[in-house]
Structure formats: structure tokens, C-alpha cells
Design a protein around this nucleic acid. Structure first.
Lengths: 292, 292
DNA sequence: CCTGTTCTGAAAAAAATTTTCCACATTGGC
DNA sequence: GCCAATGTGGAAAATTTTTTTCAGAACAGG
């Protein structure tokens, strides 16, 4: 029996791991268009999702409802409570929180940043940079600054899964000379430098350049001084109403780059991914995936 | 025939004078609880209003619908449009690259994720979580998984600037017992766990909980098992057309949380920020900012 | 008080929706 | 590569919903 306190949304999350592929298809559709996507008849709902009616029927039973009508009723009750509850206006995209809530202000700023960042990425440079990152004939070095260290770490984790010969320069610049020693012509250095730009990153870039290393730079909208010597550099809009900078757009660009790199290197990467999966399986560090 | 532009609400106003007493009873009930009161079956709707089914059927025909099902569909469409409405404007924000370019496909997916994530954040839980993170009377522990380690790192770097008593649990779970030793009732543990969920994180959360530690969880749309014991948990939409998951929305939620934390702790934080600035100045690790 | 009109809801008929059953397809293990 | 187990959708059966019909109630006006 469905507990009175739990919303359908919660029920879906609770039972998500029990759901089959087709059932998840509906679950996702519903969560993305909640609750409207579940309020039509089971026939229509199934048609919109692209699955059969029995699939929907089975799924709502898994959630604990006796049948689709009961599920329908539950959704409706939630909708009723929501509308009559606080104030109706959920006009803008956001939570039920008022316009002035930090969440909404934040959403606005971040969206703006993403949009500007995207419309300023030159696609040829992007493709070229992805090509460099996918070049397994040479070594790829990654380095970040004080804040961007975490981004470099993220890039390293993913790129290491995609290709061999990836090296993460630890944040302590004292060790950098050791890495420089191993850099060769044709290697690539992926750098992150957003304000306050760090002088030792500039020094590192200069020395790498002298060795014939290609430098790919991800920086903010004002451009780090490294941009002048980088092979490719990308600007990310980072300003938010706060004392520090947002790295959401930076991460998005990075992920897009990783994705492009992966696409380019796919034939090799696929095998690598599967091996990685098996290794994780063996070390039993991870449970079976909850997701698909 | 129902005009495509007019809402049911408008139709009711237009035809109100044609309606009989019983019909108005339903019209009022619907307007007061719009649109939920009209989205159940005609039988239920009639029952709730205290009139008979033929009355409802006659009325929706007066409004211009062919039958109740068509009326139902119109209401549903309005609801759907309302939710997805203002955000739909993804316009032509993108680079000069063609629609099919990876950059644009990526932008689309990420935007969708951000939007869905945002509209699923419960603002009370958000505020409550920020309150926990800002509580300097207790220690704040931060931990992430294999991929989310970078996010935990990012959170640590920022929160450490905001407040004292922040501890980052290194990714090696072998050392976690040491940290558990120091956890006390009222402390907070900020966790990141996206699929594939890691069983040692669940164990850690359980042990922390036993010690009376508040657990704030940031997870994906399918929810880590930790969610069941967490004090507050937040779902981030992470799916992109790729073999791995995007953490853009995760980072956004994290940054929003940090921002809220900072706002809450500001009187104390301000001084802390200024001291940090002076320290950086002294160690000369950083140049003067290039930005504003 | 009667009559004609309008309104209303019970009940039957019609039209759907939902559920059940079963065969086919797909997946994962050996 | 085969077999068992599981997942999926078509189609019929069961159920519910919607519509229609129609008889009686309410009301206004004479």
C-alpha cells in the first residue's frame, strides 16, 4: 500500500532499481514533466512514452498502487495540495520558492553564464582541442590552480578512463620541474586558470611551450595571461552575485571537451571502458549499478 | 469548437451566463482549484462537486468541447504548457556551429538537466541544509566517491574559506575510521554519491548516523541508497548522451549550497575572507587579479 | 392551483479504459 | 552458442467511464 506521506516522485526513486528499462523510460518522462505526464489515461501515457499499456500498469503496481486509476488519483491529490498550499505562482522555472530566493537568483545567473559561454566557443578551436586531447601518440598533462585543482582532478579521472598516457600534475608546484623533464614535443598540456591567475601556471606554460608542447587553456571571461601563448584557449563566463566565481560553465565546457575527445577516440576507448568495468567488478569496490 | 488560444478558465468566464445553477457549482469549484478539480474522471468530479454526471457533461459541451475527455485533455495541455513554458526559450543560443555539432547537443542536454534539477529542489530542505553547513558550533565533514571526489574537493576548498572546522575525508576509505572516531553528535557530513553508488559510502553514512551526525546528501536523479538515512538529500539530473554522467547540475547545486551557506554565515565569514586574502598576499602565491 | 418550461439525476446503453493472458523477443549465464 | 529467465507488447476479457435517455422535481407566471 502506498504510504500516505510519500509522493509519487519519492516512490519512483525508492523503487527505481526494481524497474525495468521500459518502465524507467516512463519514470524518467514523468519526472521530467511532473505530474502532467502521468495524468492522462494509461493508453495515452503509454503512447507518449513509447511503451505499451501493460508496462505502465506493471510499473505502477511496483510502486505500490493497486492499479493505474489509483496512481492517477495519487498524482492528482499531490497537484491539488501543491496548488492550494503555498501560493500558486510557480511561473518561472524553479522550485516552489519565491522569485527572490537564492536558488532562483542563482539559477538565473548560472543560465546566463552558460549561454554566454556557449555562444562564444569557436567550434573549430573546440574540435582542434579535442583532437589534441585524443592523441594517444603523445602524453597528456593536466594541471589546475588553487580553485581549479578540483576541475583538473575531474578532467584527469575521466580522461584517464578514455585514453592512456594521462598525467595529473599535483597542485604543489614544487614538483612541476619533474614533470617538465618528461614533456616532449607534440605532447599536450591541459591547463585551468581562472582569476586570480597564478604566476607559476604562466611560468609552467612558458617552459612547456619551449619544449614544443601544445597548450590547451580553459580560463574565465577576462582571459588568463597564459592565453597569449596557448595553442587553443576557451573563455568561460564565471560571474555570479557572490564573493567567488562559479565554475558551472567551466565544468560544462570541460565535459563537452571530454565528450568530444571520447567520441574521437571511441574505437580504442570502448575496449578500455569495458576493461575498466571488469576491474571495478573484480575489486568489488562498487555495487551493481542502480542506473541503467 | 474550442479556440486554440483560449484557456478553459477563459471559456468558463465567457459562458458563465449560459450556465445553470448546478453547472455553476462545478464551474466555481474548478476555478477555485484549477485545474486539479477537473482532472479526475467525470464521475469523481461530479461527486466532489455534488452534482450528477450528466450535469458536468452538459456543461463542458456548453463550453464548446465535444465531450468530457476532450475537456480533460485541454486542461492537461494547459498544465503541461505551464510547467515547461518559460524555460522552453532555449532560442538559438549556441555557437556558429551546426545544430548537430556535439557542442550544441551537449548544451541542450545540460540545459535540460539544470532545469529539471532546479525544479525538483525543495526549498525548505535547501535552506535547512545550508543552515547545517553554516553551523560553526560543530564540525563539517565532506566526502565523495570515485568520480565525485573532485566535487568534494571543490566543496572543501570553498567551505574552508567560509568557515572553520571543515574536514575533507580523503578518497581512500581505509582512513575513514579515523575520522569516524572524531565525529560527534550534531556534526554534519556532506556526501556526494552518484551512480554507481559505492557501498562503503553507505556504510560510512550509517556509522555516522549512529553517532548522531546529520547527513546531507547530493545524489543523482535515481537516488543513492544513502538517501534513505540522510537528513536532507538532493537529486541532480546527470544524464547526457554519453557513457558517463554529467556533473554540471551537481556542481550548480553545490555552488548554490555554498552560496547559501556563505550568506548565512556572513558576519563571521567576512573577516575570514579578508584574512585569507592577506595571507595569499604575503605568500605571494598569486598575482593581483586581472578581473575587477 | 394549474400549466409549461427548464433543470436535474437515476438508470441503461455505448464507448472508452484498464487489466489479464499469452506468445514472442531479448538478455545474461553457463 | 545454447538455454533459461526475464522483459515486452498484442489482443481479448473485465471493468470503468462516459453518454444518452427519460421521468420527475423545481420554479415562474398566469
Amino acid at each position: 500500500m502506498t504510504q500516505p506521506s510519500s509522493t509519487v516522485r519519492e516512490l519512483i526513486r525508492q523503487h527505481y532499481s526494481d524497474l525495468t528499462q521500459s518502465e524507467r523510460k516512463f519514470a524518467n518522462a514523468l519526472l521530467e514533466n511532473y505530474p502532467a505526464a502521468g495524468l492522462a489515461s494509461i493508453t495515452i501515457v503509454a503512447g507518449q512514452t513509447g511503451v505499451s499499456t501493460p508496462t505502465i500498469a506493471r510499473m505502477v503496481q511496483k510502486l505500490g498502487f493497486k492499479g493505474f486509476p489509483q496512481f492517477h488519483k495519487a498524482l492528482l491529490k499531490e497537484l491539488q495540495a501543491k496548488v492550494s498550499g503555498p501560493t500558486e505562482r510557480r511561473a518561472n522555472w524553479a522550485t516552489e520558492a519565491p522569485e527572490s530566493h537564492l536558488l532562483n537568483r542563482f539559477a538565473k545567473a548560472v543560465t546566463q553564464n552558460l549561454q554566454t559561454t556557449f555562444s562564444n566557443v569557436p567550434s573549430e578551436a573546440f574540435d582542434a582541442a579535442a583532437h589534441l586531447l585524443a592523441d594517444t601518440d603523445h602524453t597528456l598533462f593536466i594541471v589546475g590552480g588553487r580553485i581549479t585543482h578540483a576541475l583538473a582532478d575531474y578532467a584527469f579521472t575521466h580522461l584517464q578512463a578514455v585514453r592512456p598516457r594521462v598525467i595529473h600534475l599535483t597542485s604543489s608546484s614544487a614538483t612541476w620541474p619533474h614533470y617538465l623533464l618528461d614533456m616532449e614535443k607534440g605532447d599536450t598540456l591541459l591547463m585551468f586558470d581562472i582569476r586570480r591567475y597564478e604566476s607559476n601556471l604562466l611560468r609552467l606554460a612558458e617552459l612547456a611551450r619551449e619544449r614544443g608542447v601544445e597548450v590547451v587553456l580553459i580560463t574565465d571571461q577576462w582571459s588568463s595571461p597564459v592565453a597569449e601563448i596557448a595553442t587553443h584557449s576557451f573563455n568561460c563566463w564565471v560571474e555570479i552575485p557572490s564573493a567567488w566565481d562559479s565554475n558551472v560553465s567551466t565544468l560544462m565546457l570541460l565535459e563537452a571537451l571530454i565528450s568530444a575527445t571520447q567520441e574521437e577516440a571511441w574505437p580504442n576507448t570502448k575496449d578500455r571502458y569495458e576493461r575498466l568495468d571488469r576491474l571495478f567488478e573484480q575489486t568489488r569496490l562498487f555495487r551493481k549499478p542502480g542506473g541503467q
